[in-house]
């Protein structure tokens, strides 16, 4: 589904952050990318999602046979790429429900499906909330406005569930959560696991992986994947820390 080859990138008018990344993600797989702060995890996720501010200086990314990097951010999203933001953006004045319906209908149009009217959309929302066992308290508020850290992450998972992406990139969706919020979020992730959906979990801590079992784990350090393995790698990292990869954290 996703094939990253020799990807090199720099911050616009800044230094090189990704120094040759190779990664293969197949449908149905869950990959975890771990690594110390500043190793380039968010940069990788941002580049895959089409965030402005970076320059790809080498390598390629193929997604479902297409050159991912040639698509605009909104095209990528409509093609099924979803980025759960490490820091979801607050958008005052844009109602959460209004926003999500606009997004879902954009995706549906692209898939050749009929748009949902307000009633149909509300029904779909209710069903999804029930499935994920989350409340409806955030729906009528401005997008992420005044949400707590946990509420923001919950909102990301909810959006993911509504948009049903093919490739989900979750950037530190676990960080800053208390244990109940973490369970709620990982429950959501597990429910969305499916044979035709791939997930990339970016995380600094092993904690999330106690709840969501990845098929593969990669360690990113200073812009390179320095080690890959199965889920047992997480436990090992927990013991040794990232020190072996040149980081004090």
């Amino acid at each position: 589904m996703l094939k990253i080859s020799g990807l090199q990138a720099k911050i616009l008018s800044g230094r090189e952050v990704l120094k040759g990344i190779d990664l293969n993600v197949k449908a149905g797989e869950v990959h975890a990318i771990m690594g110390p702060n500043g190793s380039g995890k968010s940069t990788l996720a941002g580049i895959l999602a089409g965030k402005p501010g970076y320059e790809v200086t080498g390598g390629s990314v193929t997604y479902q046979g297409k050159d991912l990097l040639s698509l605009s951010a909104d095209e990528r999203a409509r093609e099924g790429v979803f980025l759960a933001f490490q820091y979801p953006v607050e958008i005052p004045g844009v109602n959460n429900m209004y926003f999500l319906r606009a997004a879902l209908n954009a995706v549906r149009r692209h898939r050749g499906e009929a748009e949902l009217d307000a009633g149909q959309f509300l029904k779909a929302v209710r069903a999804k909330l029930k499935e994920l066992e989350i409340g409806d308290d955030l729906l009528q508020r401005g997008v992420n406005v005044g949400f707590s850290g946990g509420e923001k992450k919950r909102n990301e998972i909810f959006q993911m569930a509504m948009l049903e992406p093919k490739l989900a990139l979750l950037d530190e969706t676990d960080s800053g959560l208390d244990i109940d919020a973490l369970k709620l979020v990982s429950n959501g992730i597990n429910k969305l696991r499916s044979p035709d959906r791939a997930m990339v979990l970016i995380t600094h801590y092993q904690r999330l992986l106690d709840y969501v079992e990845p098929d593969h784990i990669h360690v990113l350090s200073q812009g390179k994947i320095v080690m890959s393995g199965d889920k047992s790698l997480a436990a090992e990292l927990e013991k040794t820390g990232y020190a072996a990869f040149g980081d004090a954290a």
């Binding site: 999602a49 965030k51 402005p52 909104d74 980025l83 958008i91 997004a103 692209h110």
Partner: peptide, 22 residues
């Protein structure tokens, strides 16, 4: 904010309109 909206599939012109309206 613009990128956030686009990253959910909303075409750039529509995302701009949403932010201006807000």
């Amino acid at each position: 904010a613009l990128f956030y909206l686009e990253a959910r599939g909303i075409p750039a012109p529509e995302a701009r309109r949403m932010l201006i309206e807000a």
